[in-house]
Amino acid sequence: MDKMDRTDEQLLETIADLHGIPEGSFNIRKNGKLLARNSGTDVEIVSKTDKDGIDIIVKPGVKNKSVHIPVLLTVGDFQDTVYNDFFIGEDSDVTIVAGCGIHNDTCGNAEHDGVHTFYVGKNAKVRYVERHYADGSGTGKKVFDPVTKIYLKENAQFILESTQLGGVTYTERKTYATVGKNAQLLVKEKILTDGEEKAITDFKVKLSGKNSRADIVSRSVAKGNSLQQFKSDMVGKNECFGHVECDGIVLDGARIISTPKIDAVSPEASLVHEAAVGKIAGEQLLKLMSLGLSEQEAEDAVIKGFLN
């Protein structure tokens, strides 16, 4: 097994708030290889045999447990695809932290594509935290193309908190969810792009169960010449409630394109979409400047709060 160096530790801290090796179950992957793992009885982690990836099995009724599965990429000319399946037992309550950090000092591209599938049992509660971060001095691209599939059984609740706050050259993230009876999907997405970066995020949500709910809130800030695209496609197939909110701040020469689609297949479905894209409200800057901040400081404070 490889050892962790300073770069690894810094990345781990940024993407997973980890200081060294975490408590509880974890699986740390570095440059396509296993770096460290702890598989427990409550949460079992098993390597796949047919392809790269792991099965994470949360036993029924397991409460207040956390699982860390960070991924580190510190070389160029490397494309890492990993298939992780999560089997979340009935009545369980877990937090899964799955950040990925790329540090690329080379001129070759570094790419991590995590294909994550969640099978969430009845009455189970999952908080899934995914942070993507990249840095490094090389000209090589830093790319994430994650796919997240979520299947929610009766009464299940899934909170997805995904954050990408800088350094990622290109990302195209796809999130698919099927929400069952009385189940709930909550998404809080935050994306910051700068320079020539590009970020695409695409949600496809099927509200199939009676009284199912989905609430997707995306906040994005695009600076420099960056481009962001937000797409969502929500289908209400039953008596359900769905809400999609895309809020964007554009600065400099950046662009944010929001494309919503809502389809109430069932007449009992209630679906709402809100989108607002624009520069920072002048009144907000004036207020903060009147507290003694410079215009730049005021702008930073508004953005920091917005992505808070």
Binding site: G292, E295, V302, G305, N308
Partner: peptide, 28 residues
């Protein structure tokens, strides 16, 4: 003098219509 300069000179305003911020907390 700009707003910032006046603020630093000791001018303090409470607006008739306070502005709202998404995400900035009362504490912040």
């Amino acid at each position: 003098l700009s707003i910032t300069e006046r603020a630093q000179k000791g001018f303090t305003i409470a607006f008739q219509q306070p502005v709202r911020f998404k995400g900035i907390t009362v504490k912040k």
